[in-house]
Amino acid sequence: MSRFLLCFLSLAGIPLLMYSQGDSAAKSARQSLVYLQYFAKNNQVPYLKLQTKNKSDKGFLPAQKVPVSIYLDKDSLKETLVADVITDTLGESIVGLPPSLASLWVESDAHTFIANASSAADFDATVKTINVTIARLDLDTVNNENGRSVVARLLKKEGSSWIPIPDIDLRLTVKRFGGYLNIGDKESYTTDSTGSAVGEFLLKNLPGDSLGNIELTALLDDNDEVGSLQTGMRVPWGAPLQFESNFGERSLWATGSRAPFWLIVLATGCVISVWSVIIYLFTRIYQIRKLRIKEN
């Protein structure tokens, strides 16, 4: 009996063993990754975008609900903690620089962000570090006899002054339909020794708001030194948009009370003509009935 029990337990253990082996095999094939990007919009308070992913045979898949602690310059210190976050269902989180770190932020020209991701159900603990130099992206416009130009200027902090950053490609665009439309033929413009990139504004009759305002935007994407910077300004260079609502007009897609006249005439005409015939036929039946009465 005991031999039989031992045999049964051994057999029952096989699936468990296979499961545990399979699980550890999957774990070893997986590589957990943390992505950290630095952003600054309109030279305001910067923020960080955090992403947690797993690299597996299926590709890069988001790792959700991963606890991550982000520090500024020094790891694991309460005073340098930017935020404790848990990534969302897409494995993402956005973190702004808290006011408590403002003094530390302005103390030096360059900083390091350290993201400590703890292990979670589907994620292995890992650390990601990025270095960022404090920079600003200014935007201005020039009107002359040749036309309109957009000037973007990229500067980095050095002590108490700002110095130009040359040879950086950035985009000069107009914000449009949730995307960015280049202001001219060139895809990007390179900053010169003064940190300036100048682009001629070639867009004509671009629809703006009701006053013709459009939003110019200078974009620097994921630069190794200064991160992602974006600065915008509104200028009245577009064509004023005259919105004419046709909501109240008679149309095939309007409410019943706003049906097109031609449809009302056509449909009513058809119904009236056919039902006139039917009513006429009812009068004929009545006539047949009356004939009996007459003959009686």
Binding site: A254, T255, G256, A259, L263, A267
Partner: peptide
Amino acid sequence: HVRLQSPIIW
């Protein structure tokens, strides 16, 4: 609430 534009009423 007749809506003549709709094939349902036709």
